[in-house]
């Protein structure tokens, strides 16, 4: 019920095109490619990103940013797409894929890729200590391989 009420409120809101904010949009792409390695926005930017309101520094790719990028991507994806095509995200996130990111990108040990080494052994421990993190990628998608061992539902 609550969702329906929320959606009913959204539709007319979206339809009112005269209600658009007058602010200029972000550019489609960053003016140049930053290349490989840590993207540290503070090297070139100060202050806040106009239209988004958040400081450039808040997007600096520190280890914390990389680990918790989900909390940013869920709010400011227009910023991510300045530099990342969807395919970049899909190396790790996919509805269906077969190659582990660390194998596909075996030439990039500096990337913070998941499941390095023999993950089949390790996942049995990681999966028990924090299954919610696995759920984000394997919950409703990308779980074809799991079925080989986890037969009916998640039981073995």
């Amino acid at each position: 019920m609550v969702q329906i009420a929320l959606l009913a409120a959204m539709v007319p809101l979206a339809a009112c095109s005269w209600m658009f904010s007058p602010e200029t949009s972000l550019p489609g792409r960053h003016p140049f490619d930053l290349g490989e390695g840590r993207a540290l926005c503070g090297e070139c930017h100060e202050g806040r990103i106009k239209g988004v309101g958040k400081p450039f520094a808040s997007f600096s790719h520190s280890p914390e940013f990389v680990r918790n990028h989900r909390l940013r991507a869920a709010r400011d994806e227009q910023v991510c797409v300045l530099c990342h095509h969807g395919s970049f995200c899909n190396d790790c996130h996919a509805g269906k894929t077969e190659i582990k990111p660390s194998v596909k990108l075996g030439n990039r040990p500096d990337r913070e890729l998941i499941h390095r080494g023999d993950y089949v052994s390790l996942h049995m421990i990681d999966g028990k200590s924090d299954p919610t993190s696995c759920y984000r990628c394997h919950g409703r998608a990308n779980n074809e391989k799991c079925a080989a061992c986890h037969r009916g539902g998640g039981r073995r």
């Binding site: 028990k128 299954p131 919610t132 696995c134 759920y135 394997h138 919950g139 409703r140 779980n143 799991c146 079925a147 986890h150 009916g152 539902g153 998640g154 039981r155």
Partner: peptide, 16 residues
């Protein structure tokens, strides 16, 4: 509540 719409993960709750 989190795993509710995933058959795979809902089934894991027996163990977890």
């Amino acid at each position: 509540d989190l795993f509710f719409s995933s058959i795979f993960f809902a089934g894991l709750l027996d163990n977890l």
